[in-house]
Computed example of a mutant assay.
Amino acid sequence: MAVEVANESEISVDEHALAGVCRYVLGELDVSPLAELSVLCVDVDYMASLHERWMGEKGPTDVLAFPMDELDTARPDDPDPGPALLGDVVLCPAVAVRQARAAGHSMGDELLLLATHGVLHLLGYDHMEPDEEKEMFGLQTTLLDGWRSTPRDPVTGEPTASGESGPR
């Protein structure tokens, strides 16, 4: 799965971890390995302009998701799967810093949560209704718990196939 991460914000982020959690979520949800998505980290002003333009709300937000292709082109059971551009997840690290402090965890953990949240939106999940919220946030928690418990190569950060970490 191709996940492109670009950091255009003034705050340093772990691009490998963001790409990794997105690949993990897509894999766990059986999205075609030919699917692609981009993650863009932006500053407060740019996020505020996106938020107002697309959501009609003033001020910056933490994450926005912009879907591209139809979801059925990314399904693994498609008889003729081709590359599918899922869309863009836009994150605002400056907002993530504030939210992380309030939640009592690191900015890195907050960005992983927000990236997971954005990918779920690209895949059609929403939280406008109570039952949708319960489903989406429950899945988000399950996916993040799975991501955190998966053994990783200490150099690449990629999951190890055998559960062992380090070179062989």
Rank of each mutant, 00 (worst) to 15 (best):
T150F: 06
N7C: 10
A2T: 00
D45R: 10
D145L: 11
L112C: 14
D69T: 04
L91V: 03
C41M: 12
G20N: 10
S149Q: 06
Q140D: 07
V13K: 05
A65H: 01
L18S: 07
V31P: 00
S165H: 05
L120S: 01
V119Y: 09
R168N: 03
L18M: 08
V39Y: 14
A74H: 12
L40E: 07
P79Q: 06
M1D: 07
L18Q: 05
E52L: 08
P60C: 12
S165L: 09
E132Q: 10
D77K: 01
A100Q: 07
R53D: 15
D43C: 12
S12W: 14
L18G: 04
L40M: 06
R75P: 06
D43N: 15
R98A: 07
R101K: 04
A115N: 10
L86N: 01
E57R: 12
W147Y: 06
P76Q: 09
V90L: 04
G104S: 09
P151K: 02
M107F: 01
V31L: 03
M47Y: 03
V155F: 11
Y125E: 11
E135V: 06
N7V: 11
G138A: 00
M1Q: 11
L112S: 10
P159V: 12
H16R: 15
L34N: 05
H127P: 00
M47N: 00
S165D: 03
V63I: 04
H51Q: 07
G82W: 13
S9F: 08
L112D: 12
P67T: 13
P159R: 04
L123D: 07
S12A: 15
Y125H: 13
H121K: 13
V63T: 08
A115T: 14
S106M: 04
G82Q: 11
S38C: 10
E57F: 04
E52Y: 03
M55R: 13
T156K: 05
E52P: 00
Y46A: 00
Q99P: 01
E110L: 06
L40S: 02
